[in-house]
Design a protein around this nucleic acid. Structure first.
Lengths: 335, 335
DNA sequence: GCCATCCTTGAAACCGGTTACAAAAAAATC
DNA sequence: GATTTTTTTGTAACCGGTTTCAAGGATGGC
């Protein structure tokens, strides 16, 4: 009568007539196993369709093979670009034994107690500059990678925001616009602040006026943006001829506000976005925007995380990817 | 000289002057521990900021506390509604010790080898009717919940598609439309098929003509939809006065196609959608559509999964949530 | 005061792997 | 052929918890 409940690896060992150590060595591709022995063990493994227990392994190796994915607390459902990033991430782990772990929204202590243990590294999407979870994780020896933000001592996957803003501004100026407004993002995020700064710089360099009424604080929120745009375009104030929104959803919301104010886009005013989310090519008018390579960013972030958790050094602490100006219908030269 | 490397729980036990078993009992809220002992142990735990090792625990309990989230292989980045579902899911696990696990896209065997072990249950989003992973998981004793689909013996979170279609059709008919076209979804999905079927039924019941040229096979894809709509509205064929798209992105794409054909929405033709994705209220014109309660669906799915993995019985094998007709600008009564 | 019952605790086995160490076997050196 | 070196293997400890089982102590009934 065979013991059915025999711990798996011991059963394989028995059937193959070797010790559990040897089976383990075969499983881990340890080089000094005689070919003949290896073959025998492999056969048994195949025959019984054995695969090692994740937990047994993780416990002794102290490795989870999980990468944690942290998105900002206030991530709203309009963060459509997140789907692209996620796609890039899943591509980067395809066919690997790594998994992505989505933590619950919770306090920092809860996070450390219930998540930190389960992961080998983490990717943070656009975290605030002094995210406590990041420092706690690093204290615990878990590498962290950030996307679209900058955190001291954490590898960063990002775009060159200044260059991107400049591309758009130069394009608008070339179209003849000299009254350009900005719909800024959430200014506590370093990237949003940088975009605003570069907007100002470009205006200055081109001898264009910076009117602070034309800098709208959209905070990446559609509702807020809608209100501010309607407000700007009501009454007899002087109006810009182009509005550069720091993300696409704000641009779309702005267009809506303008239409509701009976102002035509692009005939009466040019509106441009930032991100190139999926829907940007299907809105009416379709959106002129700056494309961020989100899928790539997701892949690179995960690749970096994997390298770090395997104690490899990264070639570079910063991976800055290219952006691209995408011209569609929402922009037009000035008459 | 104290042994620093003492296994954690043993260290706590020693400091508290009890056995590891007792510490474990305290950790697991076992009732028959003397209050005084419990207090002593709790103090030590707090003092050393101890929290039990996830892997040690998982290994002996055979529980991972992870819920796997499977999205269809062909999920495209325009599946914006996924963000809402995800939000609902994270809400449902907030402050719990459960986590969401995102598997890599991979073969069924790979999935079983590298993911099945790590999870206690799984939620599948709109899986094809005979998804192999689902049956394998169930064989392995892991409960599965499906959203927006139907799989034998798996609890289902869904809407009443027939009712939803009927709501929209009745609305359109009340507006005076009697030439209504449908942009169907991916017909291998049971829900898409059901919507098509109910569309036909409603036409029949209202003595309206069913013209098969007016049933466009959009497959939930924007590009395909764009082409088919442009095609339908070129040449001298008879045209519908309303188009009912089975999701919002197809509706948005259809509107784009119509505009590019110089046909005005809603003045010349009514276009409606399905889902009520975030952007639907910001497109121009904003979209009349059927709201699916995605956030709710996500929460309910996770709640069901948690109940099942804790061996609780569900109140019901099917949770059918309400839909709502949202009237916006893209629909208009016929003159 | 004695016995049955219930509460409380600890020892040790168990979950299923990995790995340090040492010994045995094979190959290389002289 | 004896000695050294290199491969190959097994034993047993280890990772850090949970749980069964049995025993000791407290309580209640008579």
């Amino acid at each position: 009568m065979t013991n059915v409940n025999k711990k798996q690896i011991r059963k394989v060992a028995e059937k193959a007539g070797v010790s559990v150590a040897t089976v383990s060595r075969v499983l881990n591709n340890y080089p000094f196993v005689k070919d003949e022995t290896r073959a025998r063990v492999t056969d048994v493994i195949k025959k019984y369709n054995y695969s090692p227990s994740y937990f047994g392994r993780a416990l002794s190796k102290k490795r989870s093979e999980n990468i944690c994915l942290v998105i900002p607390m206030n991530f709203s459902t309009d963060s459509q670009y997140f789907m692209d990033i996620l796609r890039g991430m899943t591509e980067a782990i395809a066919v690997s034994s790594y998994n992505l772990l989505f933590p619950p929204v919770c306090s920092d202590e809860h996070f450390m107690q219930n998540v930190a243990d389960k992961i080998d590294s983490a990717v943070f999407m656009a975290p605030p500059v002094n995210d406590k979870k990041i420092s706690l994780l690093k204290e615990a020896g878990k590498p962290v990678v950030v996307i679209n933000s900058r955190i001291e001592d954490a590898p960063r996957i990002d775009i060159n925001n200044r260059k991107a803003v400049r591309k758009m501004m130069n394009y608008l100026i070339k179209l003849g616009h000299n009254k350009i407004g900005l719909i800024a993002g959430y200014l506590k995020s370093p990237n949003a602040a940088e975009r605003l700064d570069e907007y100002k710089k470009t205006l200055y360099e081109n001898n264009l006026q910076l009117k602070k009424e034309w800098v709208l604080n959209g905070d990446y929120e559609t509702k807020k943006t809608y209100k501010k745009v309607r407000n700007l375009f009501s009454g007899g104030k002087e109006k810009p001829t182009a509005l550069f929104a720091c993300n696409d959803t704000m641009a779309i919301s702005a267009i809506k506000a303008l239409k509701d104010s009976k102002i035509r886009v692009p005939e009466d005013i040019t509106v441009t976005g930032f991100d190139d989310i999926f829907i940007a090519r299907y809105t009416s008018p379709s959106l002129t925007t700056i494309k961020q390579p989100f899928i790539d960013m997701g892949s690179k972030a995960v690749e970096s995380a994997i390298a770090l958790m395997n104690n490899k050094k990264l070639d570079s602490e910063e991976i800055i990817l290219d952006t691209k100006l995408i011209v569609r219908q929402s922009s037009k030269e000035i008459k």
